[in-house]
Amino acid sequence: MLSFHALEGDRIRLRPLAVEDAPAVHDYASDEQVSRFIGWRLMSRPEETAAFVDTMLQREAAGTHRYASIVEKSTQTVIGTAMLFNFDQEANRAELGYVLHRGYWGKGYGTECVALATGFAFDVLKLHKLQASVVDANVGSARVLEKNGYRLEGRLTDHYYLEGRYLDALLFGRIQDQG
């Protein structure tokens, strides 16, 4: 069976998230421009990021989440994190998440990552539906989802509380047979 941690596209591949990825994760988790869009608390110290990576690894070990480091193939650089989580076995759905280092925004890496994760979720996990939520100001992420066949399903007012202010969430979804 194909693994989430072995997906490969033209320019990126996914591999298991590792403790050694914490410095690369810190590069984007400590960037205010990235943090304001992803729903993670801004990481100001490398130790905070290392603890967060450890939490992600614990969640994956418990089977509640799947995390993968996004690696740019040409440089073997970790440029982001992909995740599947909030699995609902009865409804046969899950949530998709992804975050990229700001230096890789607007270059098609997010679109490729979402295509790989979506294909895996539908073809291997046989999910009926994938969902994703984005901060309403995150126009780039909304475009990535739309390019991959996700449809805007709604808005949650003041859903996120980040850096001392409330932000709306846009809810996107894709049913397996749509796209």
Rank of each mutant, 00 (worst) to 15 (best):
Y104D: 13
T118C: 03
D123S: 04
D136L: 03
V144E: 09
A137M: 14
G149D: 10
V99Q: 06
L116C: 00
D168I: 07
S141P: 15
V134Q: 00
K147C: 07
Y109Q: 10
L127P: 12
L116F: 03
L156K: 12
Y109S: 11
G164K: 13
A115D: 11
V114Y: 02
V124F: 03
L96F: 02
A132M: 05
S133Y: 05
G106S: 01
K147H: 15
L156T: 12
L130A: 04
Y104W: 13
T118A: 12
W105H: 04
V139A: 08
G149W: 15
A132L: 06
R151N: 07
G164D: 14
V114C: 02
D123F: 09
A142S: 10
A121N: 06
E95Q: 05
Y160P: 07
R155H: 08
G97S: 03
N148Q: 00
E153M: 05
D136A: 12
E153F: 15
H128S: 02
G140M: 11
Y109I: 07
H128P: 06
D136F: 02
S133N: 01
K126I: 10
L167M: 15
G154Y: 14
V139E: 11
K147Q: 10
G103P: 08
A142P: 10
L100H: 12
V139N: 13
Y166S: 10
V135G: 08
Y150D: 01
D168F: 07
E153N: 10
L167Y: 12
A137E: 15
R155Y: 10
L167P: 15
V124M: 13
Y104P: 00
V144Y: 03
Q131E: 14
A94C: 13
L96T: 00
S141R: 09
T118Q: 03
G164W: 14
H159W: 02
L96W: 05
G164H: 09
R102V: 01
Y166E: 05
S141M: 00
Y160V: 09
Y150M: 01
H159A: 15
Q131S: 12
V139S: 07
A142E: 11
T157A: 13
F122W: 08
R165Q: 15
R102E: 13
V114K: 01
E146F: 01
W105N: 03
G108H: 06
A121G: 12
A94W: 06
L145V: 08
Y109G: 00
Y160H: 14
E112K: 10
E163I: 12
G164F: 13
V99D: 04
E146V: 03
L130R: 00
N148K: 07
G106M: 05
A132T: 02
Q131Y: 15
N148M: 15
G110N: 12
Q131T: 13
T118K: 09
N138V: 09
K129E: 00
D158G: 00
A142L: 06
K129C: 05
L167Q: 11
L125E: 10
S141I: 08
A137T: 15
R165H: 15
Y98S: 04
H101S: 03
T157F: 09
L145Q: 08
A137N: 14
